[in-house]
Simulated assay, not measured.
Amino acid sequence: MIKTVIMDWAGTMVDYGSFAPVEAFRQLFLDHGIEVSADVIRKPMGRMKIDHLRDICQDESVSKAWYSIYDRLPNEQDIQTMYEAFEPKLFSLLEQFAVPVPGAVELADRLHEQGITIGTTTGYTRAMLDVIVPEAAKYGYKPDSVCAPDEAAAGRPHPWMIYRNAEQLGTYPMSSIVKCGDTEADMEEGRNAGVWTVGVVFGGNILGLTEQETSVLNEQDKERMFNEVAERLKKAGAHYVISEIGKLDEIIEQINIHTEAGEVQWQN
């Protein structure tokens, strides 16, 4: 039986479309004379933010643009300097992007009513979470455990944040835990921890659509987009993929059927 669900934050439970990090990174590179596309910024989403920055700098289009301006490739000192400028940009945006996505608070309430605890992992640092967590609580989202990558040995795709949550919540075995998120890094993190993994599409980073943009999609486009994103999440390790976060408890019911039948090995 599932005892704990470990949620991602941006793009899963808050910040529909995961826009806060995208805007902060976009502004950061513009300050250095480089226009970086949203697709390039979103590709490493879910990683600890300084690792995310390193990944963007390694993108071919970004490294070429950097070389054309500075006559060399970006190095670690550049990354450290840029990250110092990045944090204030992101902090200035976080509070306005802490609103829960539709269905998130109601889902959390249903999980708690069933006795399922809620933990969290993220690409945000603890200082960033210290802005997001109390703001989300104003809207009624109050997870039972919160862990940031700078409080563990390493961030995603490593499993350490999930293990920290499990320890804090007293949850074991790992087969009694579900990890839910909107990025490939979330799925890799969950698989590496040996837990069930569920990807979410609409409201998430890979699509990167606003709630308004999603609402005007026709059913054919929605189905096509869902299938495209689901394929990416499954390749990264998702056992299940849901269209929206409010459907997670339906998947938990299915997982419980597997575990009650003794099919724990099904997750591997």
Rank of each mutant, 00 (worst) to 15 (best):
K222D: 06
L73P: 02
L209T: 01
F86G: 10
D55P: 01
Y124D: 13
I245R: 07
D39M: 05
A104H: 07
A98N: 03
E135I: 03
L73A: 06
L248V: 13
V198Y: 00
P100H: 03
S243F: 01
K89R: 15
L111S: 14
Y163M: 12
L73I: 13
D8M: 09
P159M: 11
E213S: 12
E211I: 10
W9P: 11
W160K: 03
Y16K: 01
Q254Y: 11
G17L: 02
Q27R: 15
A20K: 12
E135Q: 10
D249F: 12
R42H: 05
Q220I: 10
A185G: 12
Y163R: 15
W9I: 09
S63E: 13
F97D: 05
T214C: 14
F25D: 04
S92F: 12
E211T: 06
I2C: 10
H158M: 15
T183M: 05
A24V: 08
V229L: 04
E60G: 02
V5P: 07
A10K: 05
D186N: 04
V146T: 03
Q220Y: 05
R26T: 11
A24S: 09
E23L: 12
D8L: 11
E35M: 05
E184V: 13
G46F: 03
G119H: 07
D39T: 10
G194L: 03
A127Q: 14
V241D: 04
G262A: 02
G46Q: 01
D109M: 15
Y172N: 14
R110P: 08
R42S: 06
E263F: 06
M128A: 09
R156K: 11
E167Y: 12
A20E: 06
Y124G: 12
G46K: 04
A185T: 11
A238I: 02
I50C: 11
R72M: 02
D71T: 03
Y172T: 13
F29T: 02
A153I: 14
I252V: 14
E113G: 13
R191C: 01
N268R: 07
D51H: 13
P100A: 04
I6N: 12
I251N: 03
G140A: 04
G123D: 08
N165C: 11
